[in-house]
Computed example of a mutant assay.
Amino acid sequence: MEVCAALGVPLERTVKTLAFVTPDDRLVPAALPGHARLRYGALARAAGIRRTDLAPAGGDRLARAGMRPGGVCPVSGDHDELVVFDETVGGPGRVHCGGGRPDSSIEIDVTRLMAAVPAAATAQIADIPATGPV
């Protein structure tokens, strides 16, 4: 949140990417709005695997995809990965997302970001917090 404040970027205009691996070492990045929480079961269903088959991707696995922990990007050099975008990420406008390293980010039009991953899946994998008074 401090980074968003320093850059003047609303958290809702960020895409965070959490990376997982399957037992057969396939990378499964989950891209969702920065203010959302991941629904692990929904991600597993979208990837066609069991929830128990998702494990956090370690630094070595991320390095093979050209990324480092803290800077995961939905676009990588790993051609076997299955990126799953939350269905709410596709809204219009520019977003900020990880650039592969923890000290950099990318500002990009969200449609271009999603187009850079043509084999990606889209599913309801995020819980979006309610805004405003309840």
Rank of each mutant, 00 (worst) to 15 (best):
E2F: 07
V3K: 13
V3R: 15
C4V: 09
C4H: 07
C4S: 08
A5K: 11
A6G: 12
A6T: 13
V9R: 06
P10H: 05
L11F: 03
L11K: 05
T14A: 03
K16G: 04
K16M: 04
A19E: 01
A19V: 02
F20V: 06
V21G: 08
D25K: 14
L27M: 05
P29R: 02
A30Q: 01
A30N: 03
A31I: 01
A31T: 03
P33S: 07
P33Y: 02
G34Y: 01
H35C: 09
H35E: 15
L38G: 06
L38H: 10
R39N: 12
G41E: 08
G41I: 09
G41L: 06
A42F: 03
L43K: 05
A46R: 01
A47D: 06
A47T: 03
R50G: 14
R50C: 12
R51N: 14
R51I: 08
R51E: 15
T52Y: 10
D53C: 11
L54S: 02
A55L: 10
A55Y: 13
P56N: 11
G58L: 05
G58S: 05
G58Q: 08
G59F: 10
G59C: 14
R61W: 08
L62N: 07
R64C: 12
A65P: 02
A65G: 05
G66I: 04
M67A: 06
P69E: 06
P69K: 03
P69G: 03
G70V: 06
G71A: 09
G71P: 09
G71M: 09
G71R: 06
G71N: 11
V72W: 01
V75D: 00
V75N: 00
V75G: 00
G77W: 09
D78L: 08
H79N: 13
H79D: 12
E81W: 05
E81K: 11
L82T: 02
V83R: 00
V83I: 07
V84G: 01
F85E: 00
F85S: 00
F85A: 04
D86G: 01
E87P: 03
V89C: 06
G93P: 07
G93K: 06
H96C: 14
G98L: 01
G100D: 08
R101M: 10
P102F: 02
S104Y: 13
S104R: 13
S105C: 13
S105L: 12
S105Y: 09
S105H: 15
I106Y: 11
I106G: 04
I106V: 15
E107R: 13
I108A: 06
I108Y: 02
V110Q: 05
V110I: 14
V110F: 05
T111A: 15
T111R: 15
T111S: 13
T111H: 15
R112D: 15
R112V: 15
A115D: 08
A115R: 08
A115G: 10
A116K: 10
V117Y: 02
V117G: 04
V117K: 04
P118H: 06
A119E: 14
A119G: 12
A120H: 07
A121D: 04
A121V: 11
T122F: 08
A123Q: 03
A123Y: 06
Q124S: 14
I125P: 00
A126L: 05
D127A: 13
P129R: 05
A130I: 11
T131Q: 14
T131V: 15
T131F: 10
G132L: 10
P133Q: 11
P133A: 12
V134D: 12
V134P: 15
